[in-house]
Amino acid sequence: EPSQADLDALLSAVRDNRLSIEQAVTLLTPSSGGGSGGGSMDAKEILTRFKDGGLDRAAAQALLAGRTPA
């Protein structure tokens, strides 16, 4: 399960175009075949909204942490 520091680094990389959204989703869902963790939004949607400015960093982190299976 990614830590808050991992999520923060991942969000920074996506925002700075050092990591594509697809690459980030793969890192967030290493063994689930890329499927959502059952959250209301999947990781790709969360990351896309964050990059487009629709979500701030704290909200994106909380959503990603919340949808990651324990």
Rank of each mutant, 00 (worst) to 15 (best):
A58V: 10
T26H: 14
E22L: 08
A9C: 15
I21Q: 01
L27F: 09
R67S: 06
S40N: 14
R57S: 07
A24H: 01
T26R: 09
A62N: 08
L19F: 04
Q61G: 05
G35K: 06
P2R: 07
G54M: 13
S36G: 12
L28W: 06
S3N: 09
K44A: 08
L63C: 04
S32Y: 13
D8T: 07
P2Q: 13
M41Q: 07
D16C: 10
A24N: 00
R49P: 01
E22C: 07
L63I: 04
M41K: 06
R18K: 13
T29G: 13
D56I: 03
D16M: 09
L11G: 00
T48R: 10
R18C: 08
T48N: 05
R57M: 14
R49K: 10
S36L: 11
P2M: 13
A9G: 06
I46K: 00
A59Q: 15
K44F: 15
G53S: 03
S12P: 01
G35N: 10
P69N: 13
Q23A: 10
V25L: 11
E1F: 10
L28T: 02
A62Y: 04
D8C: 14
D8N: 08
G34T: 12
R18F: 07
D52I: 08
N17D: 07
Q4F: 15
L47F: 10
L28G: 01
T48W: 05
D8P: 04
Q4R: 10
T68Q: 14
G66Q: 13
A58G: 06
S40Q: 12
G39S: 12
S3T: 07
L47P: 00
L11N: 00
P2I: 15
D42H: 08
S3P: 10
G35T: 13
A9L: 09
A59M: 11
A70M: 03
F50T: 00
G39V: 10
G54D: 11
G37I: 14
G35C: 12
S31I: 14
D16N: 07
P30H: 11
G34Q: 09
P69R: 10
T48G: 04
E45A: 10
T48I: 09
G34H: 08
R15S: 06
D16Y: 06
G66K: 13
Q23L: 08
G66S: 08
E1L: 14
G54V: 13
D52F: 11
S32L: 13
A62I: 10
S3G: 13
D16H: 10
G66R: 08
P2S: 11
L11W: 03
S36H: 12
S31F: 12
A43P: 09
G38S: 12
G53V: 01
D16L: 07
A70E: 08
P2Y: 15
R57K: 14
A13F: 05
T68S: 08
D52N: 14
D16A: 09
Q61Y: 13
E22P: 05
L7R: 02
Q23W: 05
T26C: 15
L19V: 07
A65Y: 07
E22M: 07
K51P: 01
M41G: 06
I46P: 00
R57N: 05
A24Q: 00
F50C: 01
A43S: 06
G37H: 12
T29P: 09
E22N: 06
I46L: 03
R67D: 07
S36C: 13
T29I: 10
L7H: 03
A59W: 05
L63Q: 04
L28P: 01
A58P: 04
L55Q: 01
T26Y: 14
A70W: 02
V14P: 00
G37Q: 09
G37N: 14
Q4Y: 15
L7S: 02
S12C: 09
S20M: 03
A65W: 08
L64P: 00
A13K: 05
